[in-house]
Each structure stands twice: as structure tokens, then as C-alpha cells.
Computed example of a mutant assay.
Amino acid sequence: MTNVIKLSEARVGQRGVITEVGTHCHHQAEDVELERRLLELGFVEGARVELIHEGLFGRDPIAIKVDDMRVALRRREAASLTVDVGTEALAEAAE
């Protein structure tokens, strides 16, 4: 069974694998730019992620471990990343 969520909905300690980057609806130039920037930072499909910290006020920004590096994002940016936090994803992330 899979549990696919937006990365912005994750809680501290949750791990998973990125299944989709961006909305793939490129009507807005800012959406295209955000997707490009996320890809450059290493947020690619198949990358293992873990939410390691969230800000005190409004839980924003969040710190995310992407494979072997750490990146800070705002939750609205993290909303464009879809993550599988199911049991299969956790098994892959442990490898």
C-alpha cells in the first residue's frame, strides 16, 4: 500500500521517495522557475527525502534531507513535490 502526499504535508521524521516534481502545468512562469530550481537542488524523482526540522512560527520554513544533503524550503515550495511515504518507499530509502 502506498501513501502519496505533498512534501508540505509531511511531519518531522517522515521519510519517503519523491514521485513527482512540479505540477506539470506550465501556465505560470513562476511555476516553471520553481520546478527548474527544485530540480537543480536535487529534488528529482526517485530521490530519498526526510523532513528533519520545521520552523517555530507556522512550521515554516522546513529543513529536508535529500539523499546526503540538507535543504531549507518554504512549505508553499514543498507543495509542488509529491512523496511516497508508504512501506515500499521506506524500504527503498533504507537501502
Results as ranks from 00 to 15, higher is better:
Leu7Phe: 01
Glu30Arg: 07
Ala91Ser: 03
Arg48Tyr: 04
Leu39Arg: 09
His53Ile: 08
Asp67Cys: 02
Glu45Phe: 02
Glu45Cys: 13
Ser80Lys: 00
Val44Ser: 04
Leu7Lys: 03
Ala94Pro: 03
Leu38Ala: 09
Gly42Tyr: 06
Glu33Asp: 02
Glu45Val: 15
Leu73Met: 11
Arg15Glu: 13
Ala94Ile: 07
Val21Cys: 00
Arg15Phe: 10
Glu92Asp: 12
Gly42Phe: 11
Gly86Asp: 03
Glu35Phe: 03
Ala94Ser: 14
Glu20Met: 10
Leu7Asp: 07
Val83Gln: 01
Gly16Leu: 01
Gly86Gln: 01
Asp67Trp: 12
Glu88Ile: 00
Asp31Cys: 11
Thr87Asn: 08
Ile5Cys: 03
Thr19Pro: 00
Lys6Cys: 05
Phe43Asp: 02
Val32Met: 10
Glu54Val: 15
Ile18Trp: 10
Ser8Leu: 05
Arg75Gly: 13
Ala47Pro: 01
Ala78Cys: 08
Gln28Asp: 12
Glu77Tyr: 00
Leu73Ile: 00
Gly42Ala: 05
Ala29Arg: 05
Thr87Arg: 14
Leu34Asn: 09
Asn3Tyr: 10
Gly46Met: 06
Lys6Gly: 07
Thr82Met: 09
His26Glu: 14
His26Ala: 11
Arg59Lys: 12
Gly46Leu: 10
Met1Phe: 00
Arg37Gln: 15
Leu38Glu: 07
Ala10Pro: 03
Ser8Cys: 09
Gly58Tyr: 07
Ala63Lys: 15
Met1Lys: 15
Gln14Arg: 06
His27Val: 08
Thr19Tyr: 01
Cys25Lys: 08
Ala47His: 03
Leu39Val: 14
Arg36Glu: 15
Ile52Val: 14
Val49Asn: 07
Arg48Met: 03
Ala72Ile: 07
Thr2Asp: 15
Asp84Leu: 05
Thr82Pro: 00
Ala63Asp: 12
Gly58Cys: 10
His53Lys: 10
Met1Gln: 11
Val66Gly: 09
Leu56Phe: 13
Glu20His: 13
Glu92Val: 04
Glu20Ser: 08
Ser8Pro: 05
Glu9Met: 14
Ala72Pro: 03
Val49Ala: 07
Leu51Tyr: 09
Leu7Val: 04
Asp31Ser: 11
Arg76Asp: 15
Gln28His: 10
Glu9Lys: 15
His53Ala: 12
Glu50Ala: 09
Thr23Val: 12
Thr87Pro: 13
Lys6Ile: 01
Asp84Ile: 06
Glu40Asn: 12
Lys6His: 10
Ala29Asn: 10
Arg74Lys: 11
Ala10Thr: 15
Leu90Cys: 06
Val71Arg: 03
Glu88Gly: 10
Arg15Asn: 09
Thr19His: 00
Glu9Tyr: 13
Val44Ala: 05
Pro61Ser: 13
Asp84Met: 05
Asp31Ala: 10
Phe43Glu: 03
Gly22Glu: 01
Arg37His: 12
Cys25Ser: 09
His27Ile: 05
Ser80Ala: 04
Arg74Ile: 02
Ile5Trp: 04
Ala94Phe: 08
Glu77Asp: 14
Leu39Gln: 12
Pro61Gly: 02
Lys6Asp: 01
Asp60Phe: 11
Arg70Ser: 10
